[in-house]
Design a protein around this nucleic acid. Structure first.
Lengths: 231, 231
DNA sequence: GATACAATTTAGCCATGACTAAAAACTATT
DNA sequence: AATAGTTTTTAGTCATGGCTAAATTGTATC
């Protein structure tokens, strides 16, 4: 298994190490301060375990660590994280398009597969999909050299009522939430019409595929949309 | 990740444990006595490591172990081994057919993927391939309930000269050997004509896709064939 | 049956990476 | 600046699963 980042790194990374780097990247991208508690909670480990691992990653020059400070990725660490994320999102799209696995249930599978596919397989998957730019949740697929496109859109919860929108991204990986959203007929690029938004952050009334549904405000906040006219 | 065998086993198995069980199955199937040295050499570990692991697998009722004796799979151990083997061979075929990865280089990839695919993905792959019976090397794909079909054929090295044959199985997983065979134009179900066999186990003269090649006897021994007429 | 040689097992070591419990250090409030 | 409360780190434990080296057991030969 030859990994893309192998040229920059002396020893191959474990699944766990890759998961830490990916988590740090995602938390950084969210704009969070990646403190030990945030990181350990995100990964489901105790803070002590996170400290240990972060120290190890720092020795490998993958993260910058100073006691009691937020962790940050080094350029090399970021490259590793992006490669794993590229694997993850390519795999999600591949599973969805090639094997008809519903878009709301590809995440867990990709979570394991992302660590074991070779560079050659990554390339073959990307080629077979026509070098896609986003996964089935609308998350951008990092390019091989680590570029991440900016995805447009704004939350449905902050959108004007009485207009049609197109779903361009879903900001959640929670299985049951995604299943619920799919149950409403939602999927990437689905059209939806926002009938009204109840005041005081109340539920929204949306129409998807001819059916009307009430949608809680926190759910609507996860849905990134653009005006339906926009191509 | 829900594994098929999870109903019979209390704790999930590690990749290593699954590899041991698969190795024992393969060695048993070859007809070898699965002694500690055979097993450890096959896996590339020291004999001491194999003893340790085999003891652990025995505690889990996956193998039968008595000091200084050959190991044997229990029925449960065999089911696990067959499931992993099913994963492996389904994956090989899938990678070959769906992603056009050459048949001689799917093995390593499948070797890692086989441990991380869920039951649902296994099913989706099998369905997308039309519930195939053999992988790209002609090795039988165990069915979900653990049946393994018998593959017909005999070694090319023991075949009569002056006749046409069809390749039904390649008994090797060595990358360079397989690459060589593919270079000759060989693949599953390829037709070949055996011109002559030099005496004293000398090389064979075979014709594949209009080209003649000399083939060492030990290579020919890896090629299982049936008469070309046979469907 | 004694001796030599090979195979196997035991004993003990190491790294990984989780954990708990306790100590230390930071932050906020009075 | 002292104290309280939270966060982080340290110290030390445990399981996994490799390893080497040494002891044991089994087998074959004289």
């Amino acid at each position: 298994m030859t990994k893309n980042y192998s040229s920059e790194i002396n020893s191959p990374l474990s699944t766990n190490q890759e998961d830490y780097l990916k988590a740090i990247y995602i938390l950084e991208t969210r704009g969070d301060q990646v403190t030990n508690s945030v990181l350990s909670e995100y990964l489901g480990y105790t803070p002590a375990s996170a400290t240990n691992m972060v120290k190890k990653l720092a020795q490998m020059d993958l993260v910058i660590y100073r006691r009691h400070q937020a962790v940050a990725l080094t350029p090399t660490g970021r490259r590793v994280a992006l490669e794993i994320l590229r694997h993850h999102r390519l795999l999600e799209l591949f599973l969805h398009k090639t094997l008809n696995i519903p878009w709301d249930s590809v995440h867990e599978e990709a979570e394991r597969l992302e660590h074991v596919i070779s560079e050659a397989l990554e390339d073959a998957i990307a080629a077979s999909l026509g070098y896609p730019k986003v996964d089935p949740h609308g998350d951008p697929i990092p390019s091989k050299n680590g570029d991440v496109i900016h995805t447009p859109g704004h939350p449905l919860s902050q959108s004007e009522a009485g207009r049609a929108y197109r779903l361009v991204r879903v900001l959640s990986q929670e299985k049951d939430r995604l299943a619920y959203l799919r149950g409403l007929g939602l999927h990437l690029n689905a059209e939806l019409f926002l009938h009204e938004q109840a005041p005081f952050d109340g539920p929204m009334l949306v129409e998807v595929a001819g059916e009307e549904h009430a949608l809680a405000a926190d759910m609507a906040a996860l849905l990134q949309v653009v005006p339906a006219s926009a191509e």
